[in-house]
């Protein structure tokens, strides 16, 4: 009771008056669905009739499901294309331009950022045209006498996965370049001068000055690109929908298909729980690594 009296005496209630509307929306449309996803994942449910409690069976079934390992493998390939390549490209450019004042930075920034603001569906339609059998890529190959390589890149079992991956690299490299160039311009030139006095070559200079100074930017880039690669529903669904066959399936495609097309809601919820957990853990680990080094 004394807690309650302290409560009213300190007048906490105005704070809750301001918080209430947001709290209602956040609870109804984020926290409650989040909990329900976890709850539903413990049932066999077709979305219509009464569900049947199965405990962790949906999760153990995932371990036996042959589709899951390949979907995880595809996700890892996408992490390479969406995160590793763009970050490497951005770092290469940052290293090259670390002591150079970039001319026209605001123009380059605006252009390089364009892929970030286009709707993923628009990006997908653009690249479907580029990869089309009559599209620019094949036209270019034919023009240089490599017409034998021409194919429907998104419809070919061998090329569909890297083709979607390259779209991801395209979406993300500009963001990484803009982030790292902005970061590298903030590094005090004295650091580079003293590195040079110590006899550092360009490579040692990169590892002793540039890379540590960009730690924060790299962490942000990795969080953004890796989480995008792990979710990746919009791009995959609108380019290949997981096909041809199962050559570009990712877990989020199974979440959508299971929940809304094939009526295996419990199992789809289990995949969604695992996906969410992986995204939260990866984000947490990257941020923790950065903070740990700073502290």
């Amino acid at each position: 009771m004394s807690g309650l009296r302290a409560w009213s005496a300190r007048q906490y209630w105005p704070a809750f008056f301001y918080l209430l509307p947001a709290a209602v929306f956040y609870t109804l449309f984020v926290l409650r669905p989040l909990g329900q996803t976890a709850w539903v994942s413990l049932f066999t449910w077709d979305g219509i009739t009464e569900g049947r409690w199965v405990g962790a069976d949906n999760y153990s079934a995932l371990l036996d499901d042959g589709r899951i390992p390949s979907a995880i493998a595809h996700s890892l390939v996408f992490v390479v294309f969406y995160a590793v390549f763009p970050v490497a490209l951005g770092l290469f450019l940052a290293a090259l331009m670390s002591r150079i004042r970039v001319r026209g930075l605001s123009f380059f920034r605006a252009v390089l950022f364009l892929p970030q603001i286009l709707a993923t569906v628009v990006v997908a339609v653009s690249w479907r045209w580029i990869y089309d059998i009559d599209g620019p890529l094949n036209a270019g190959l034919r023009a240089v006498g490599l017409g034998s390589l021409a194919r429907a890149w998104l419809g070919d079992y061998d090329t569909a996965l890297p083709a979607v991956g390259i779209v991801g690299t395209w979406v993300m490299y500009g963001l990484c370049m803009v982030l790292f160039l902005a970061g590298v311009q903030k590094i005090p030139t004295e650091l580079y001068e003293s590195a040079r006095l110590d006899g550092c070559g360009p490579i040692r200079e990169f590892f002793t000055v540039t890379l540590p100074a960009l730690r924060g930017e790299i962490a942000i880039a990795l969080v953004l690109t890796i989480t995008y690669a792990l979710r990746n529903f919009d791009l995959v669904w609108n380019t290949t929908a997981g096909g041809p066959g199962t050559s570009t399936t990712v877990p989020s495609v199974f979440v959508y298909q299971g929940a809304f097309l094939t009526h295996e809601v419990g199992s789809a919820a289990a995949i969604s729980v695992c996906l969410t957990a992986v995204v939260l853990v990866v984000t947490g680990v990257i941020m923790r690594l950065v903070r740990g080094k700073e502290g």
């Binding site: 918080l19 539903v40 989480t227 979710r231 979440v255 929940a259 969604s272 995204v279 939260l280």
Partner: peptide
């Protein structure tokens, strides 16, 4: 404003910031 449980509230918001929409779309 000072009030109790502010830290946990911000933590809950942080989950919503990082979480993919796939996590909520089925029950929604």
């Amino acid at each position: 404003f000072p009030f109790p449980l502010k830290g946990p509230m911000l933590g809950l918001l942080l989950i919503g910031l990082v979480m993919p929409y796939e996590a909520t779309v089925i029950p929604l």
